[in-house]
Design a binder for these strands. Structure first.
Lengths: 188, 188
DNA sequence: ACCTGAACACCGTTCAAGT
DNA sequence: ACCTGAACACCGTTCAAGT
């Protein structure tokens, strides 16, 4: 006798992300998620291949949300490529601050199986590469890699509490952004 | 009746690091480490408060090793601060390539309890900060944070296989290094 | 002083059985 | 078609007992 799904995808993803942000990635267990959505553990295997699948669900959802934010922001009329990159950098950092646990999954998942699926990750990388291409003369790849390495490293370290020497972290972010955008837009 | 320790600190740390690099951080369990050094699980609690303590042991050891390499390299006579930073960057990247799993612990441990202890981490950060101070005019903190964020992000992404678009990854490293050192040594 | 066996509460995962 | 109870092999951790 056919039976309809008891928990929606939205409920499931919301529960995973809530647990991740409240109690950490390690707290996202089959048990905790199952009991959060009111079901027994084995039922989750109908939705997901294994525990990493739960994390990928959260990562994909975060990627989708971030993509929506990046493309949702109004393209100011006279905005140049450097300005677009700057806006993206702010959005990425704000997202990392708002959802530190899942945003860690976006760029450096504990396992490839917990990383966003290629289909979810690609729309996140593409606009970044496009903006770098538009801003930097010549080969955009080294510039894009420098930019993403820096912003990923900065947000990760900030969220990990690695900036322990005091000082103004916002100012350090601006400094880095200025350095990178300056170098990219300066003709080689 | 007093009894001497059965496994040396060196054996213990070596086993942890070997398991971490061979099978991943998740494979560093009380059980796997205990059986690798030929002892029962509960015995490990004489050496370490909990599982994160095992990871910290590895992280501290990696930090010590890296510090030795950084300070061991011969100070070329006429070397300036930018040259010293460049050498450090090469050393960090080489270490990340050689010991990707534990080097991940160095900068972004899954938990603060698994991060290097302050005493082990400080000698790693200090020479970096000093070199940046010597190279960059003005406040060294933003410059140092930009440098460490970039190099951490680059090495992590490289080791995670995140640079999937082909191209010359070495060239991207040189590009980023040139950009950052150039900006730091240029007067503001 | 160090090590151990036994025990506890917890995991992820599988699978036959229920509806 | 989805859900479940029961079972399995595995964790981390504690602690009283051994030497």
């Amino acid at each position: 006798m056919p039976a309809p799904q008891r928990v929606s995808q939205e409920e499931l993803v919301a529960a995973i992300r809530r647990i991740a942000e409240d109690d950490g990635i390690d707290a996202v267990t089959m048990s905790s998620v199952a009991s959060a959505v009111g079901v027994r553990t084995p039922s989750l295997y109908k939705r997901v291949a294994d525990r990493h699948g739960l994390l990928r669900l959260a990562a994909d959802d975060a990627a989708r949300e971030l993509v929506a934010e990046l493309s949702g922001a109004p393209h100011t009329e006279g905005e140049d490529a450097a300005g677009r990159l700057r806006r993206m950098a702010y959005a990425l950092r704000a997202f990392a601050a708002r959802a530190p646990r899942v945003s860690g999954l976006l760029f450096a998942a504990p396992s490839a199986a917990a990383a966003p699926s290629p289909e979810a990750g690609e729309p996140l990388l593409r606009p970044l590469l496009e903006a770098v291409s538009a801003a930097a003369p010549g080969d955009p790849l080294p510039a894009a890699r420098t930019f993403t390495a820096w912003i990923y490293g900065f947000c990760t370290m900030e969220q990990a509490g690695a900036f322990r020497l005091g000082g103004d972290v916002d100012a350090a972010f601006e400094y880095g952004l200025d350095v990178l955008l300056g170098a990219m837009t300066r003709p080689a």
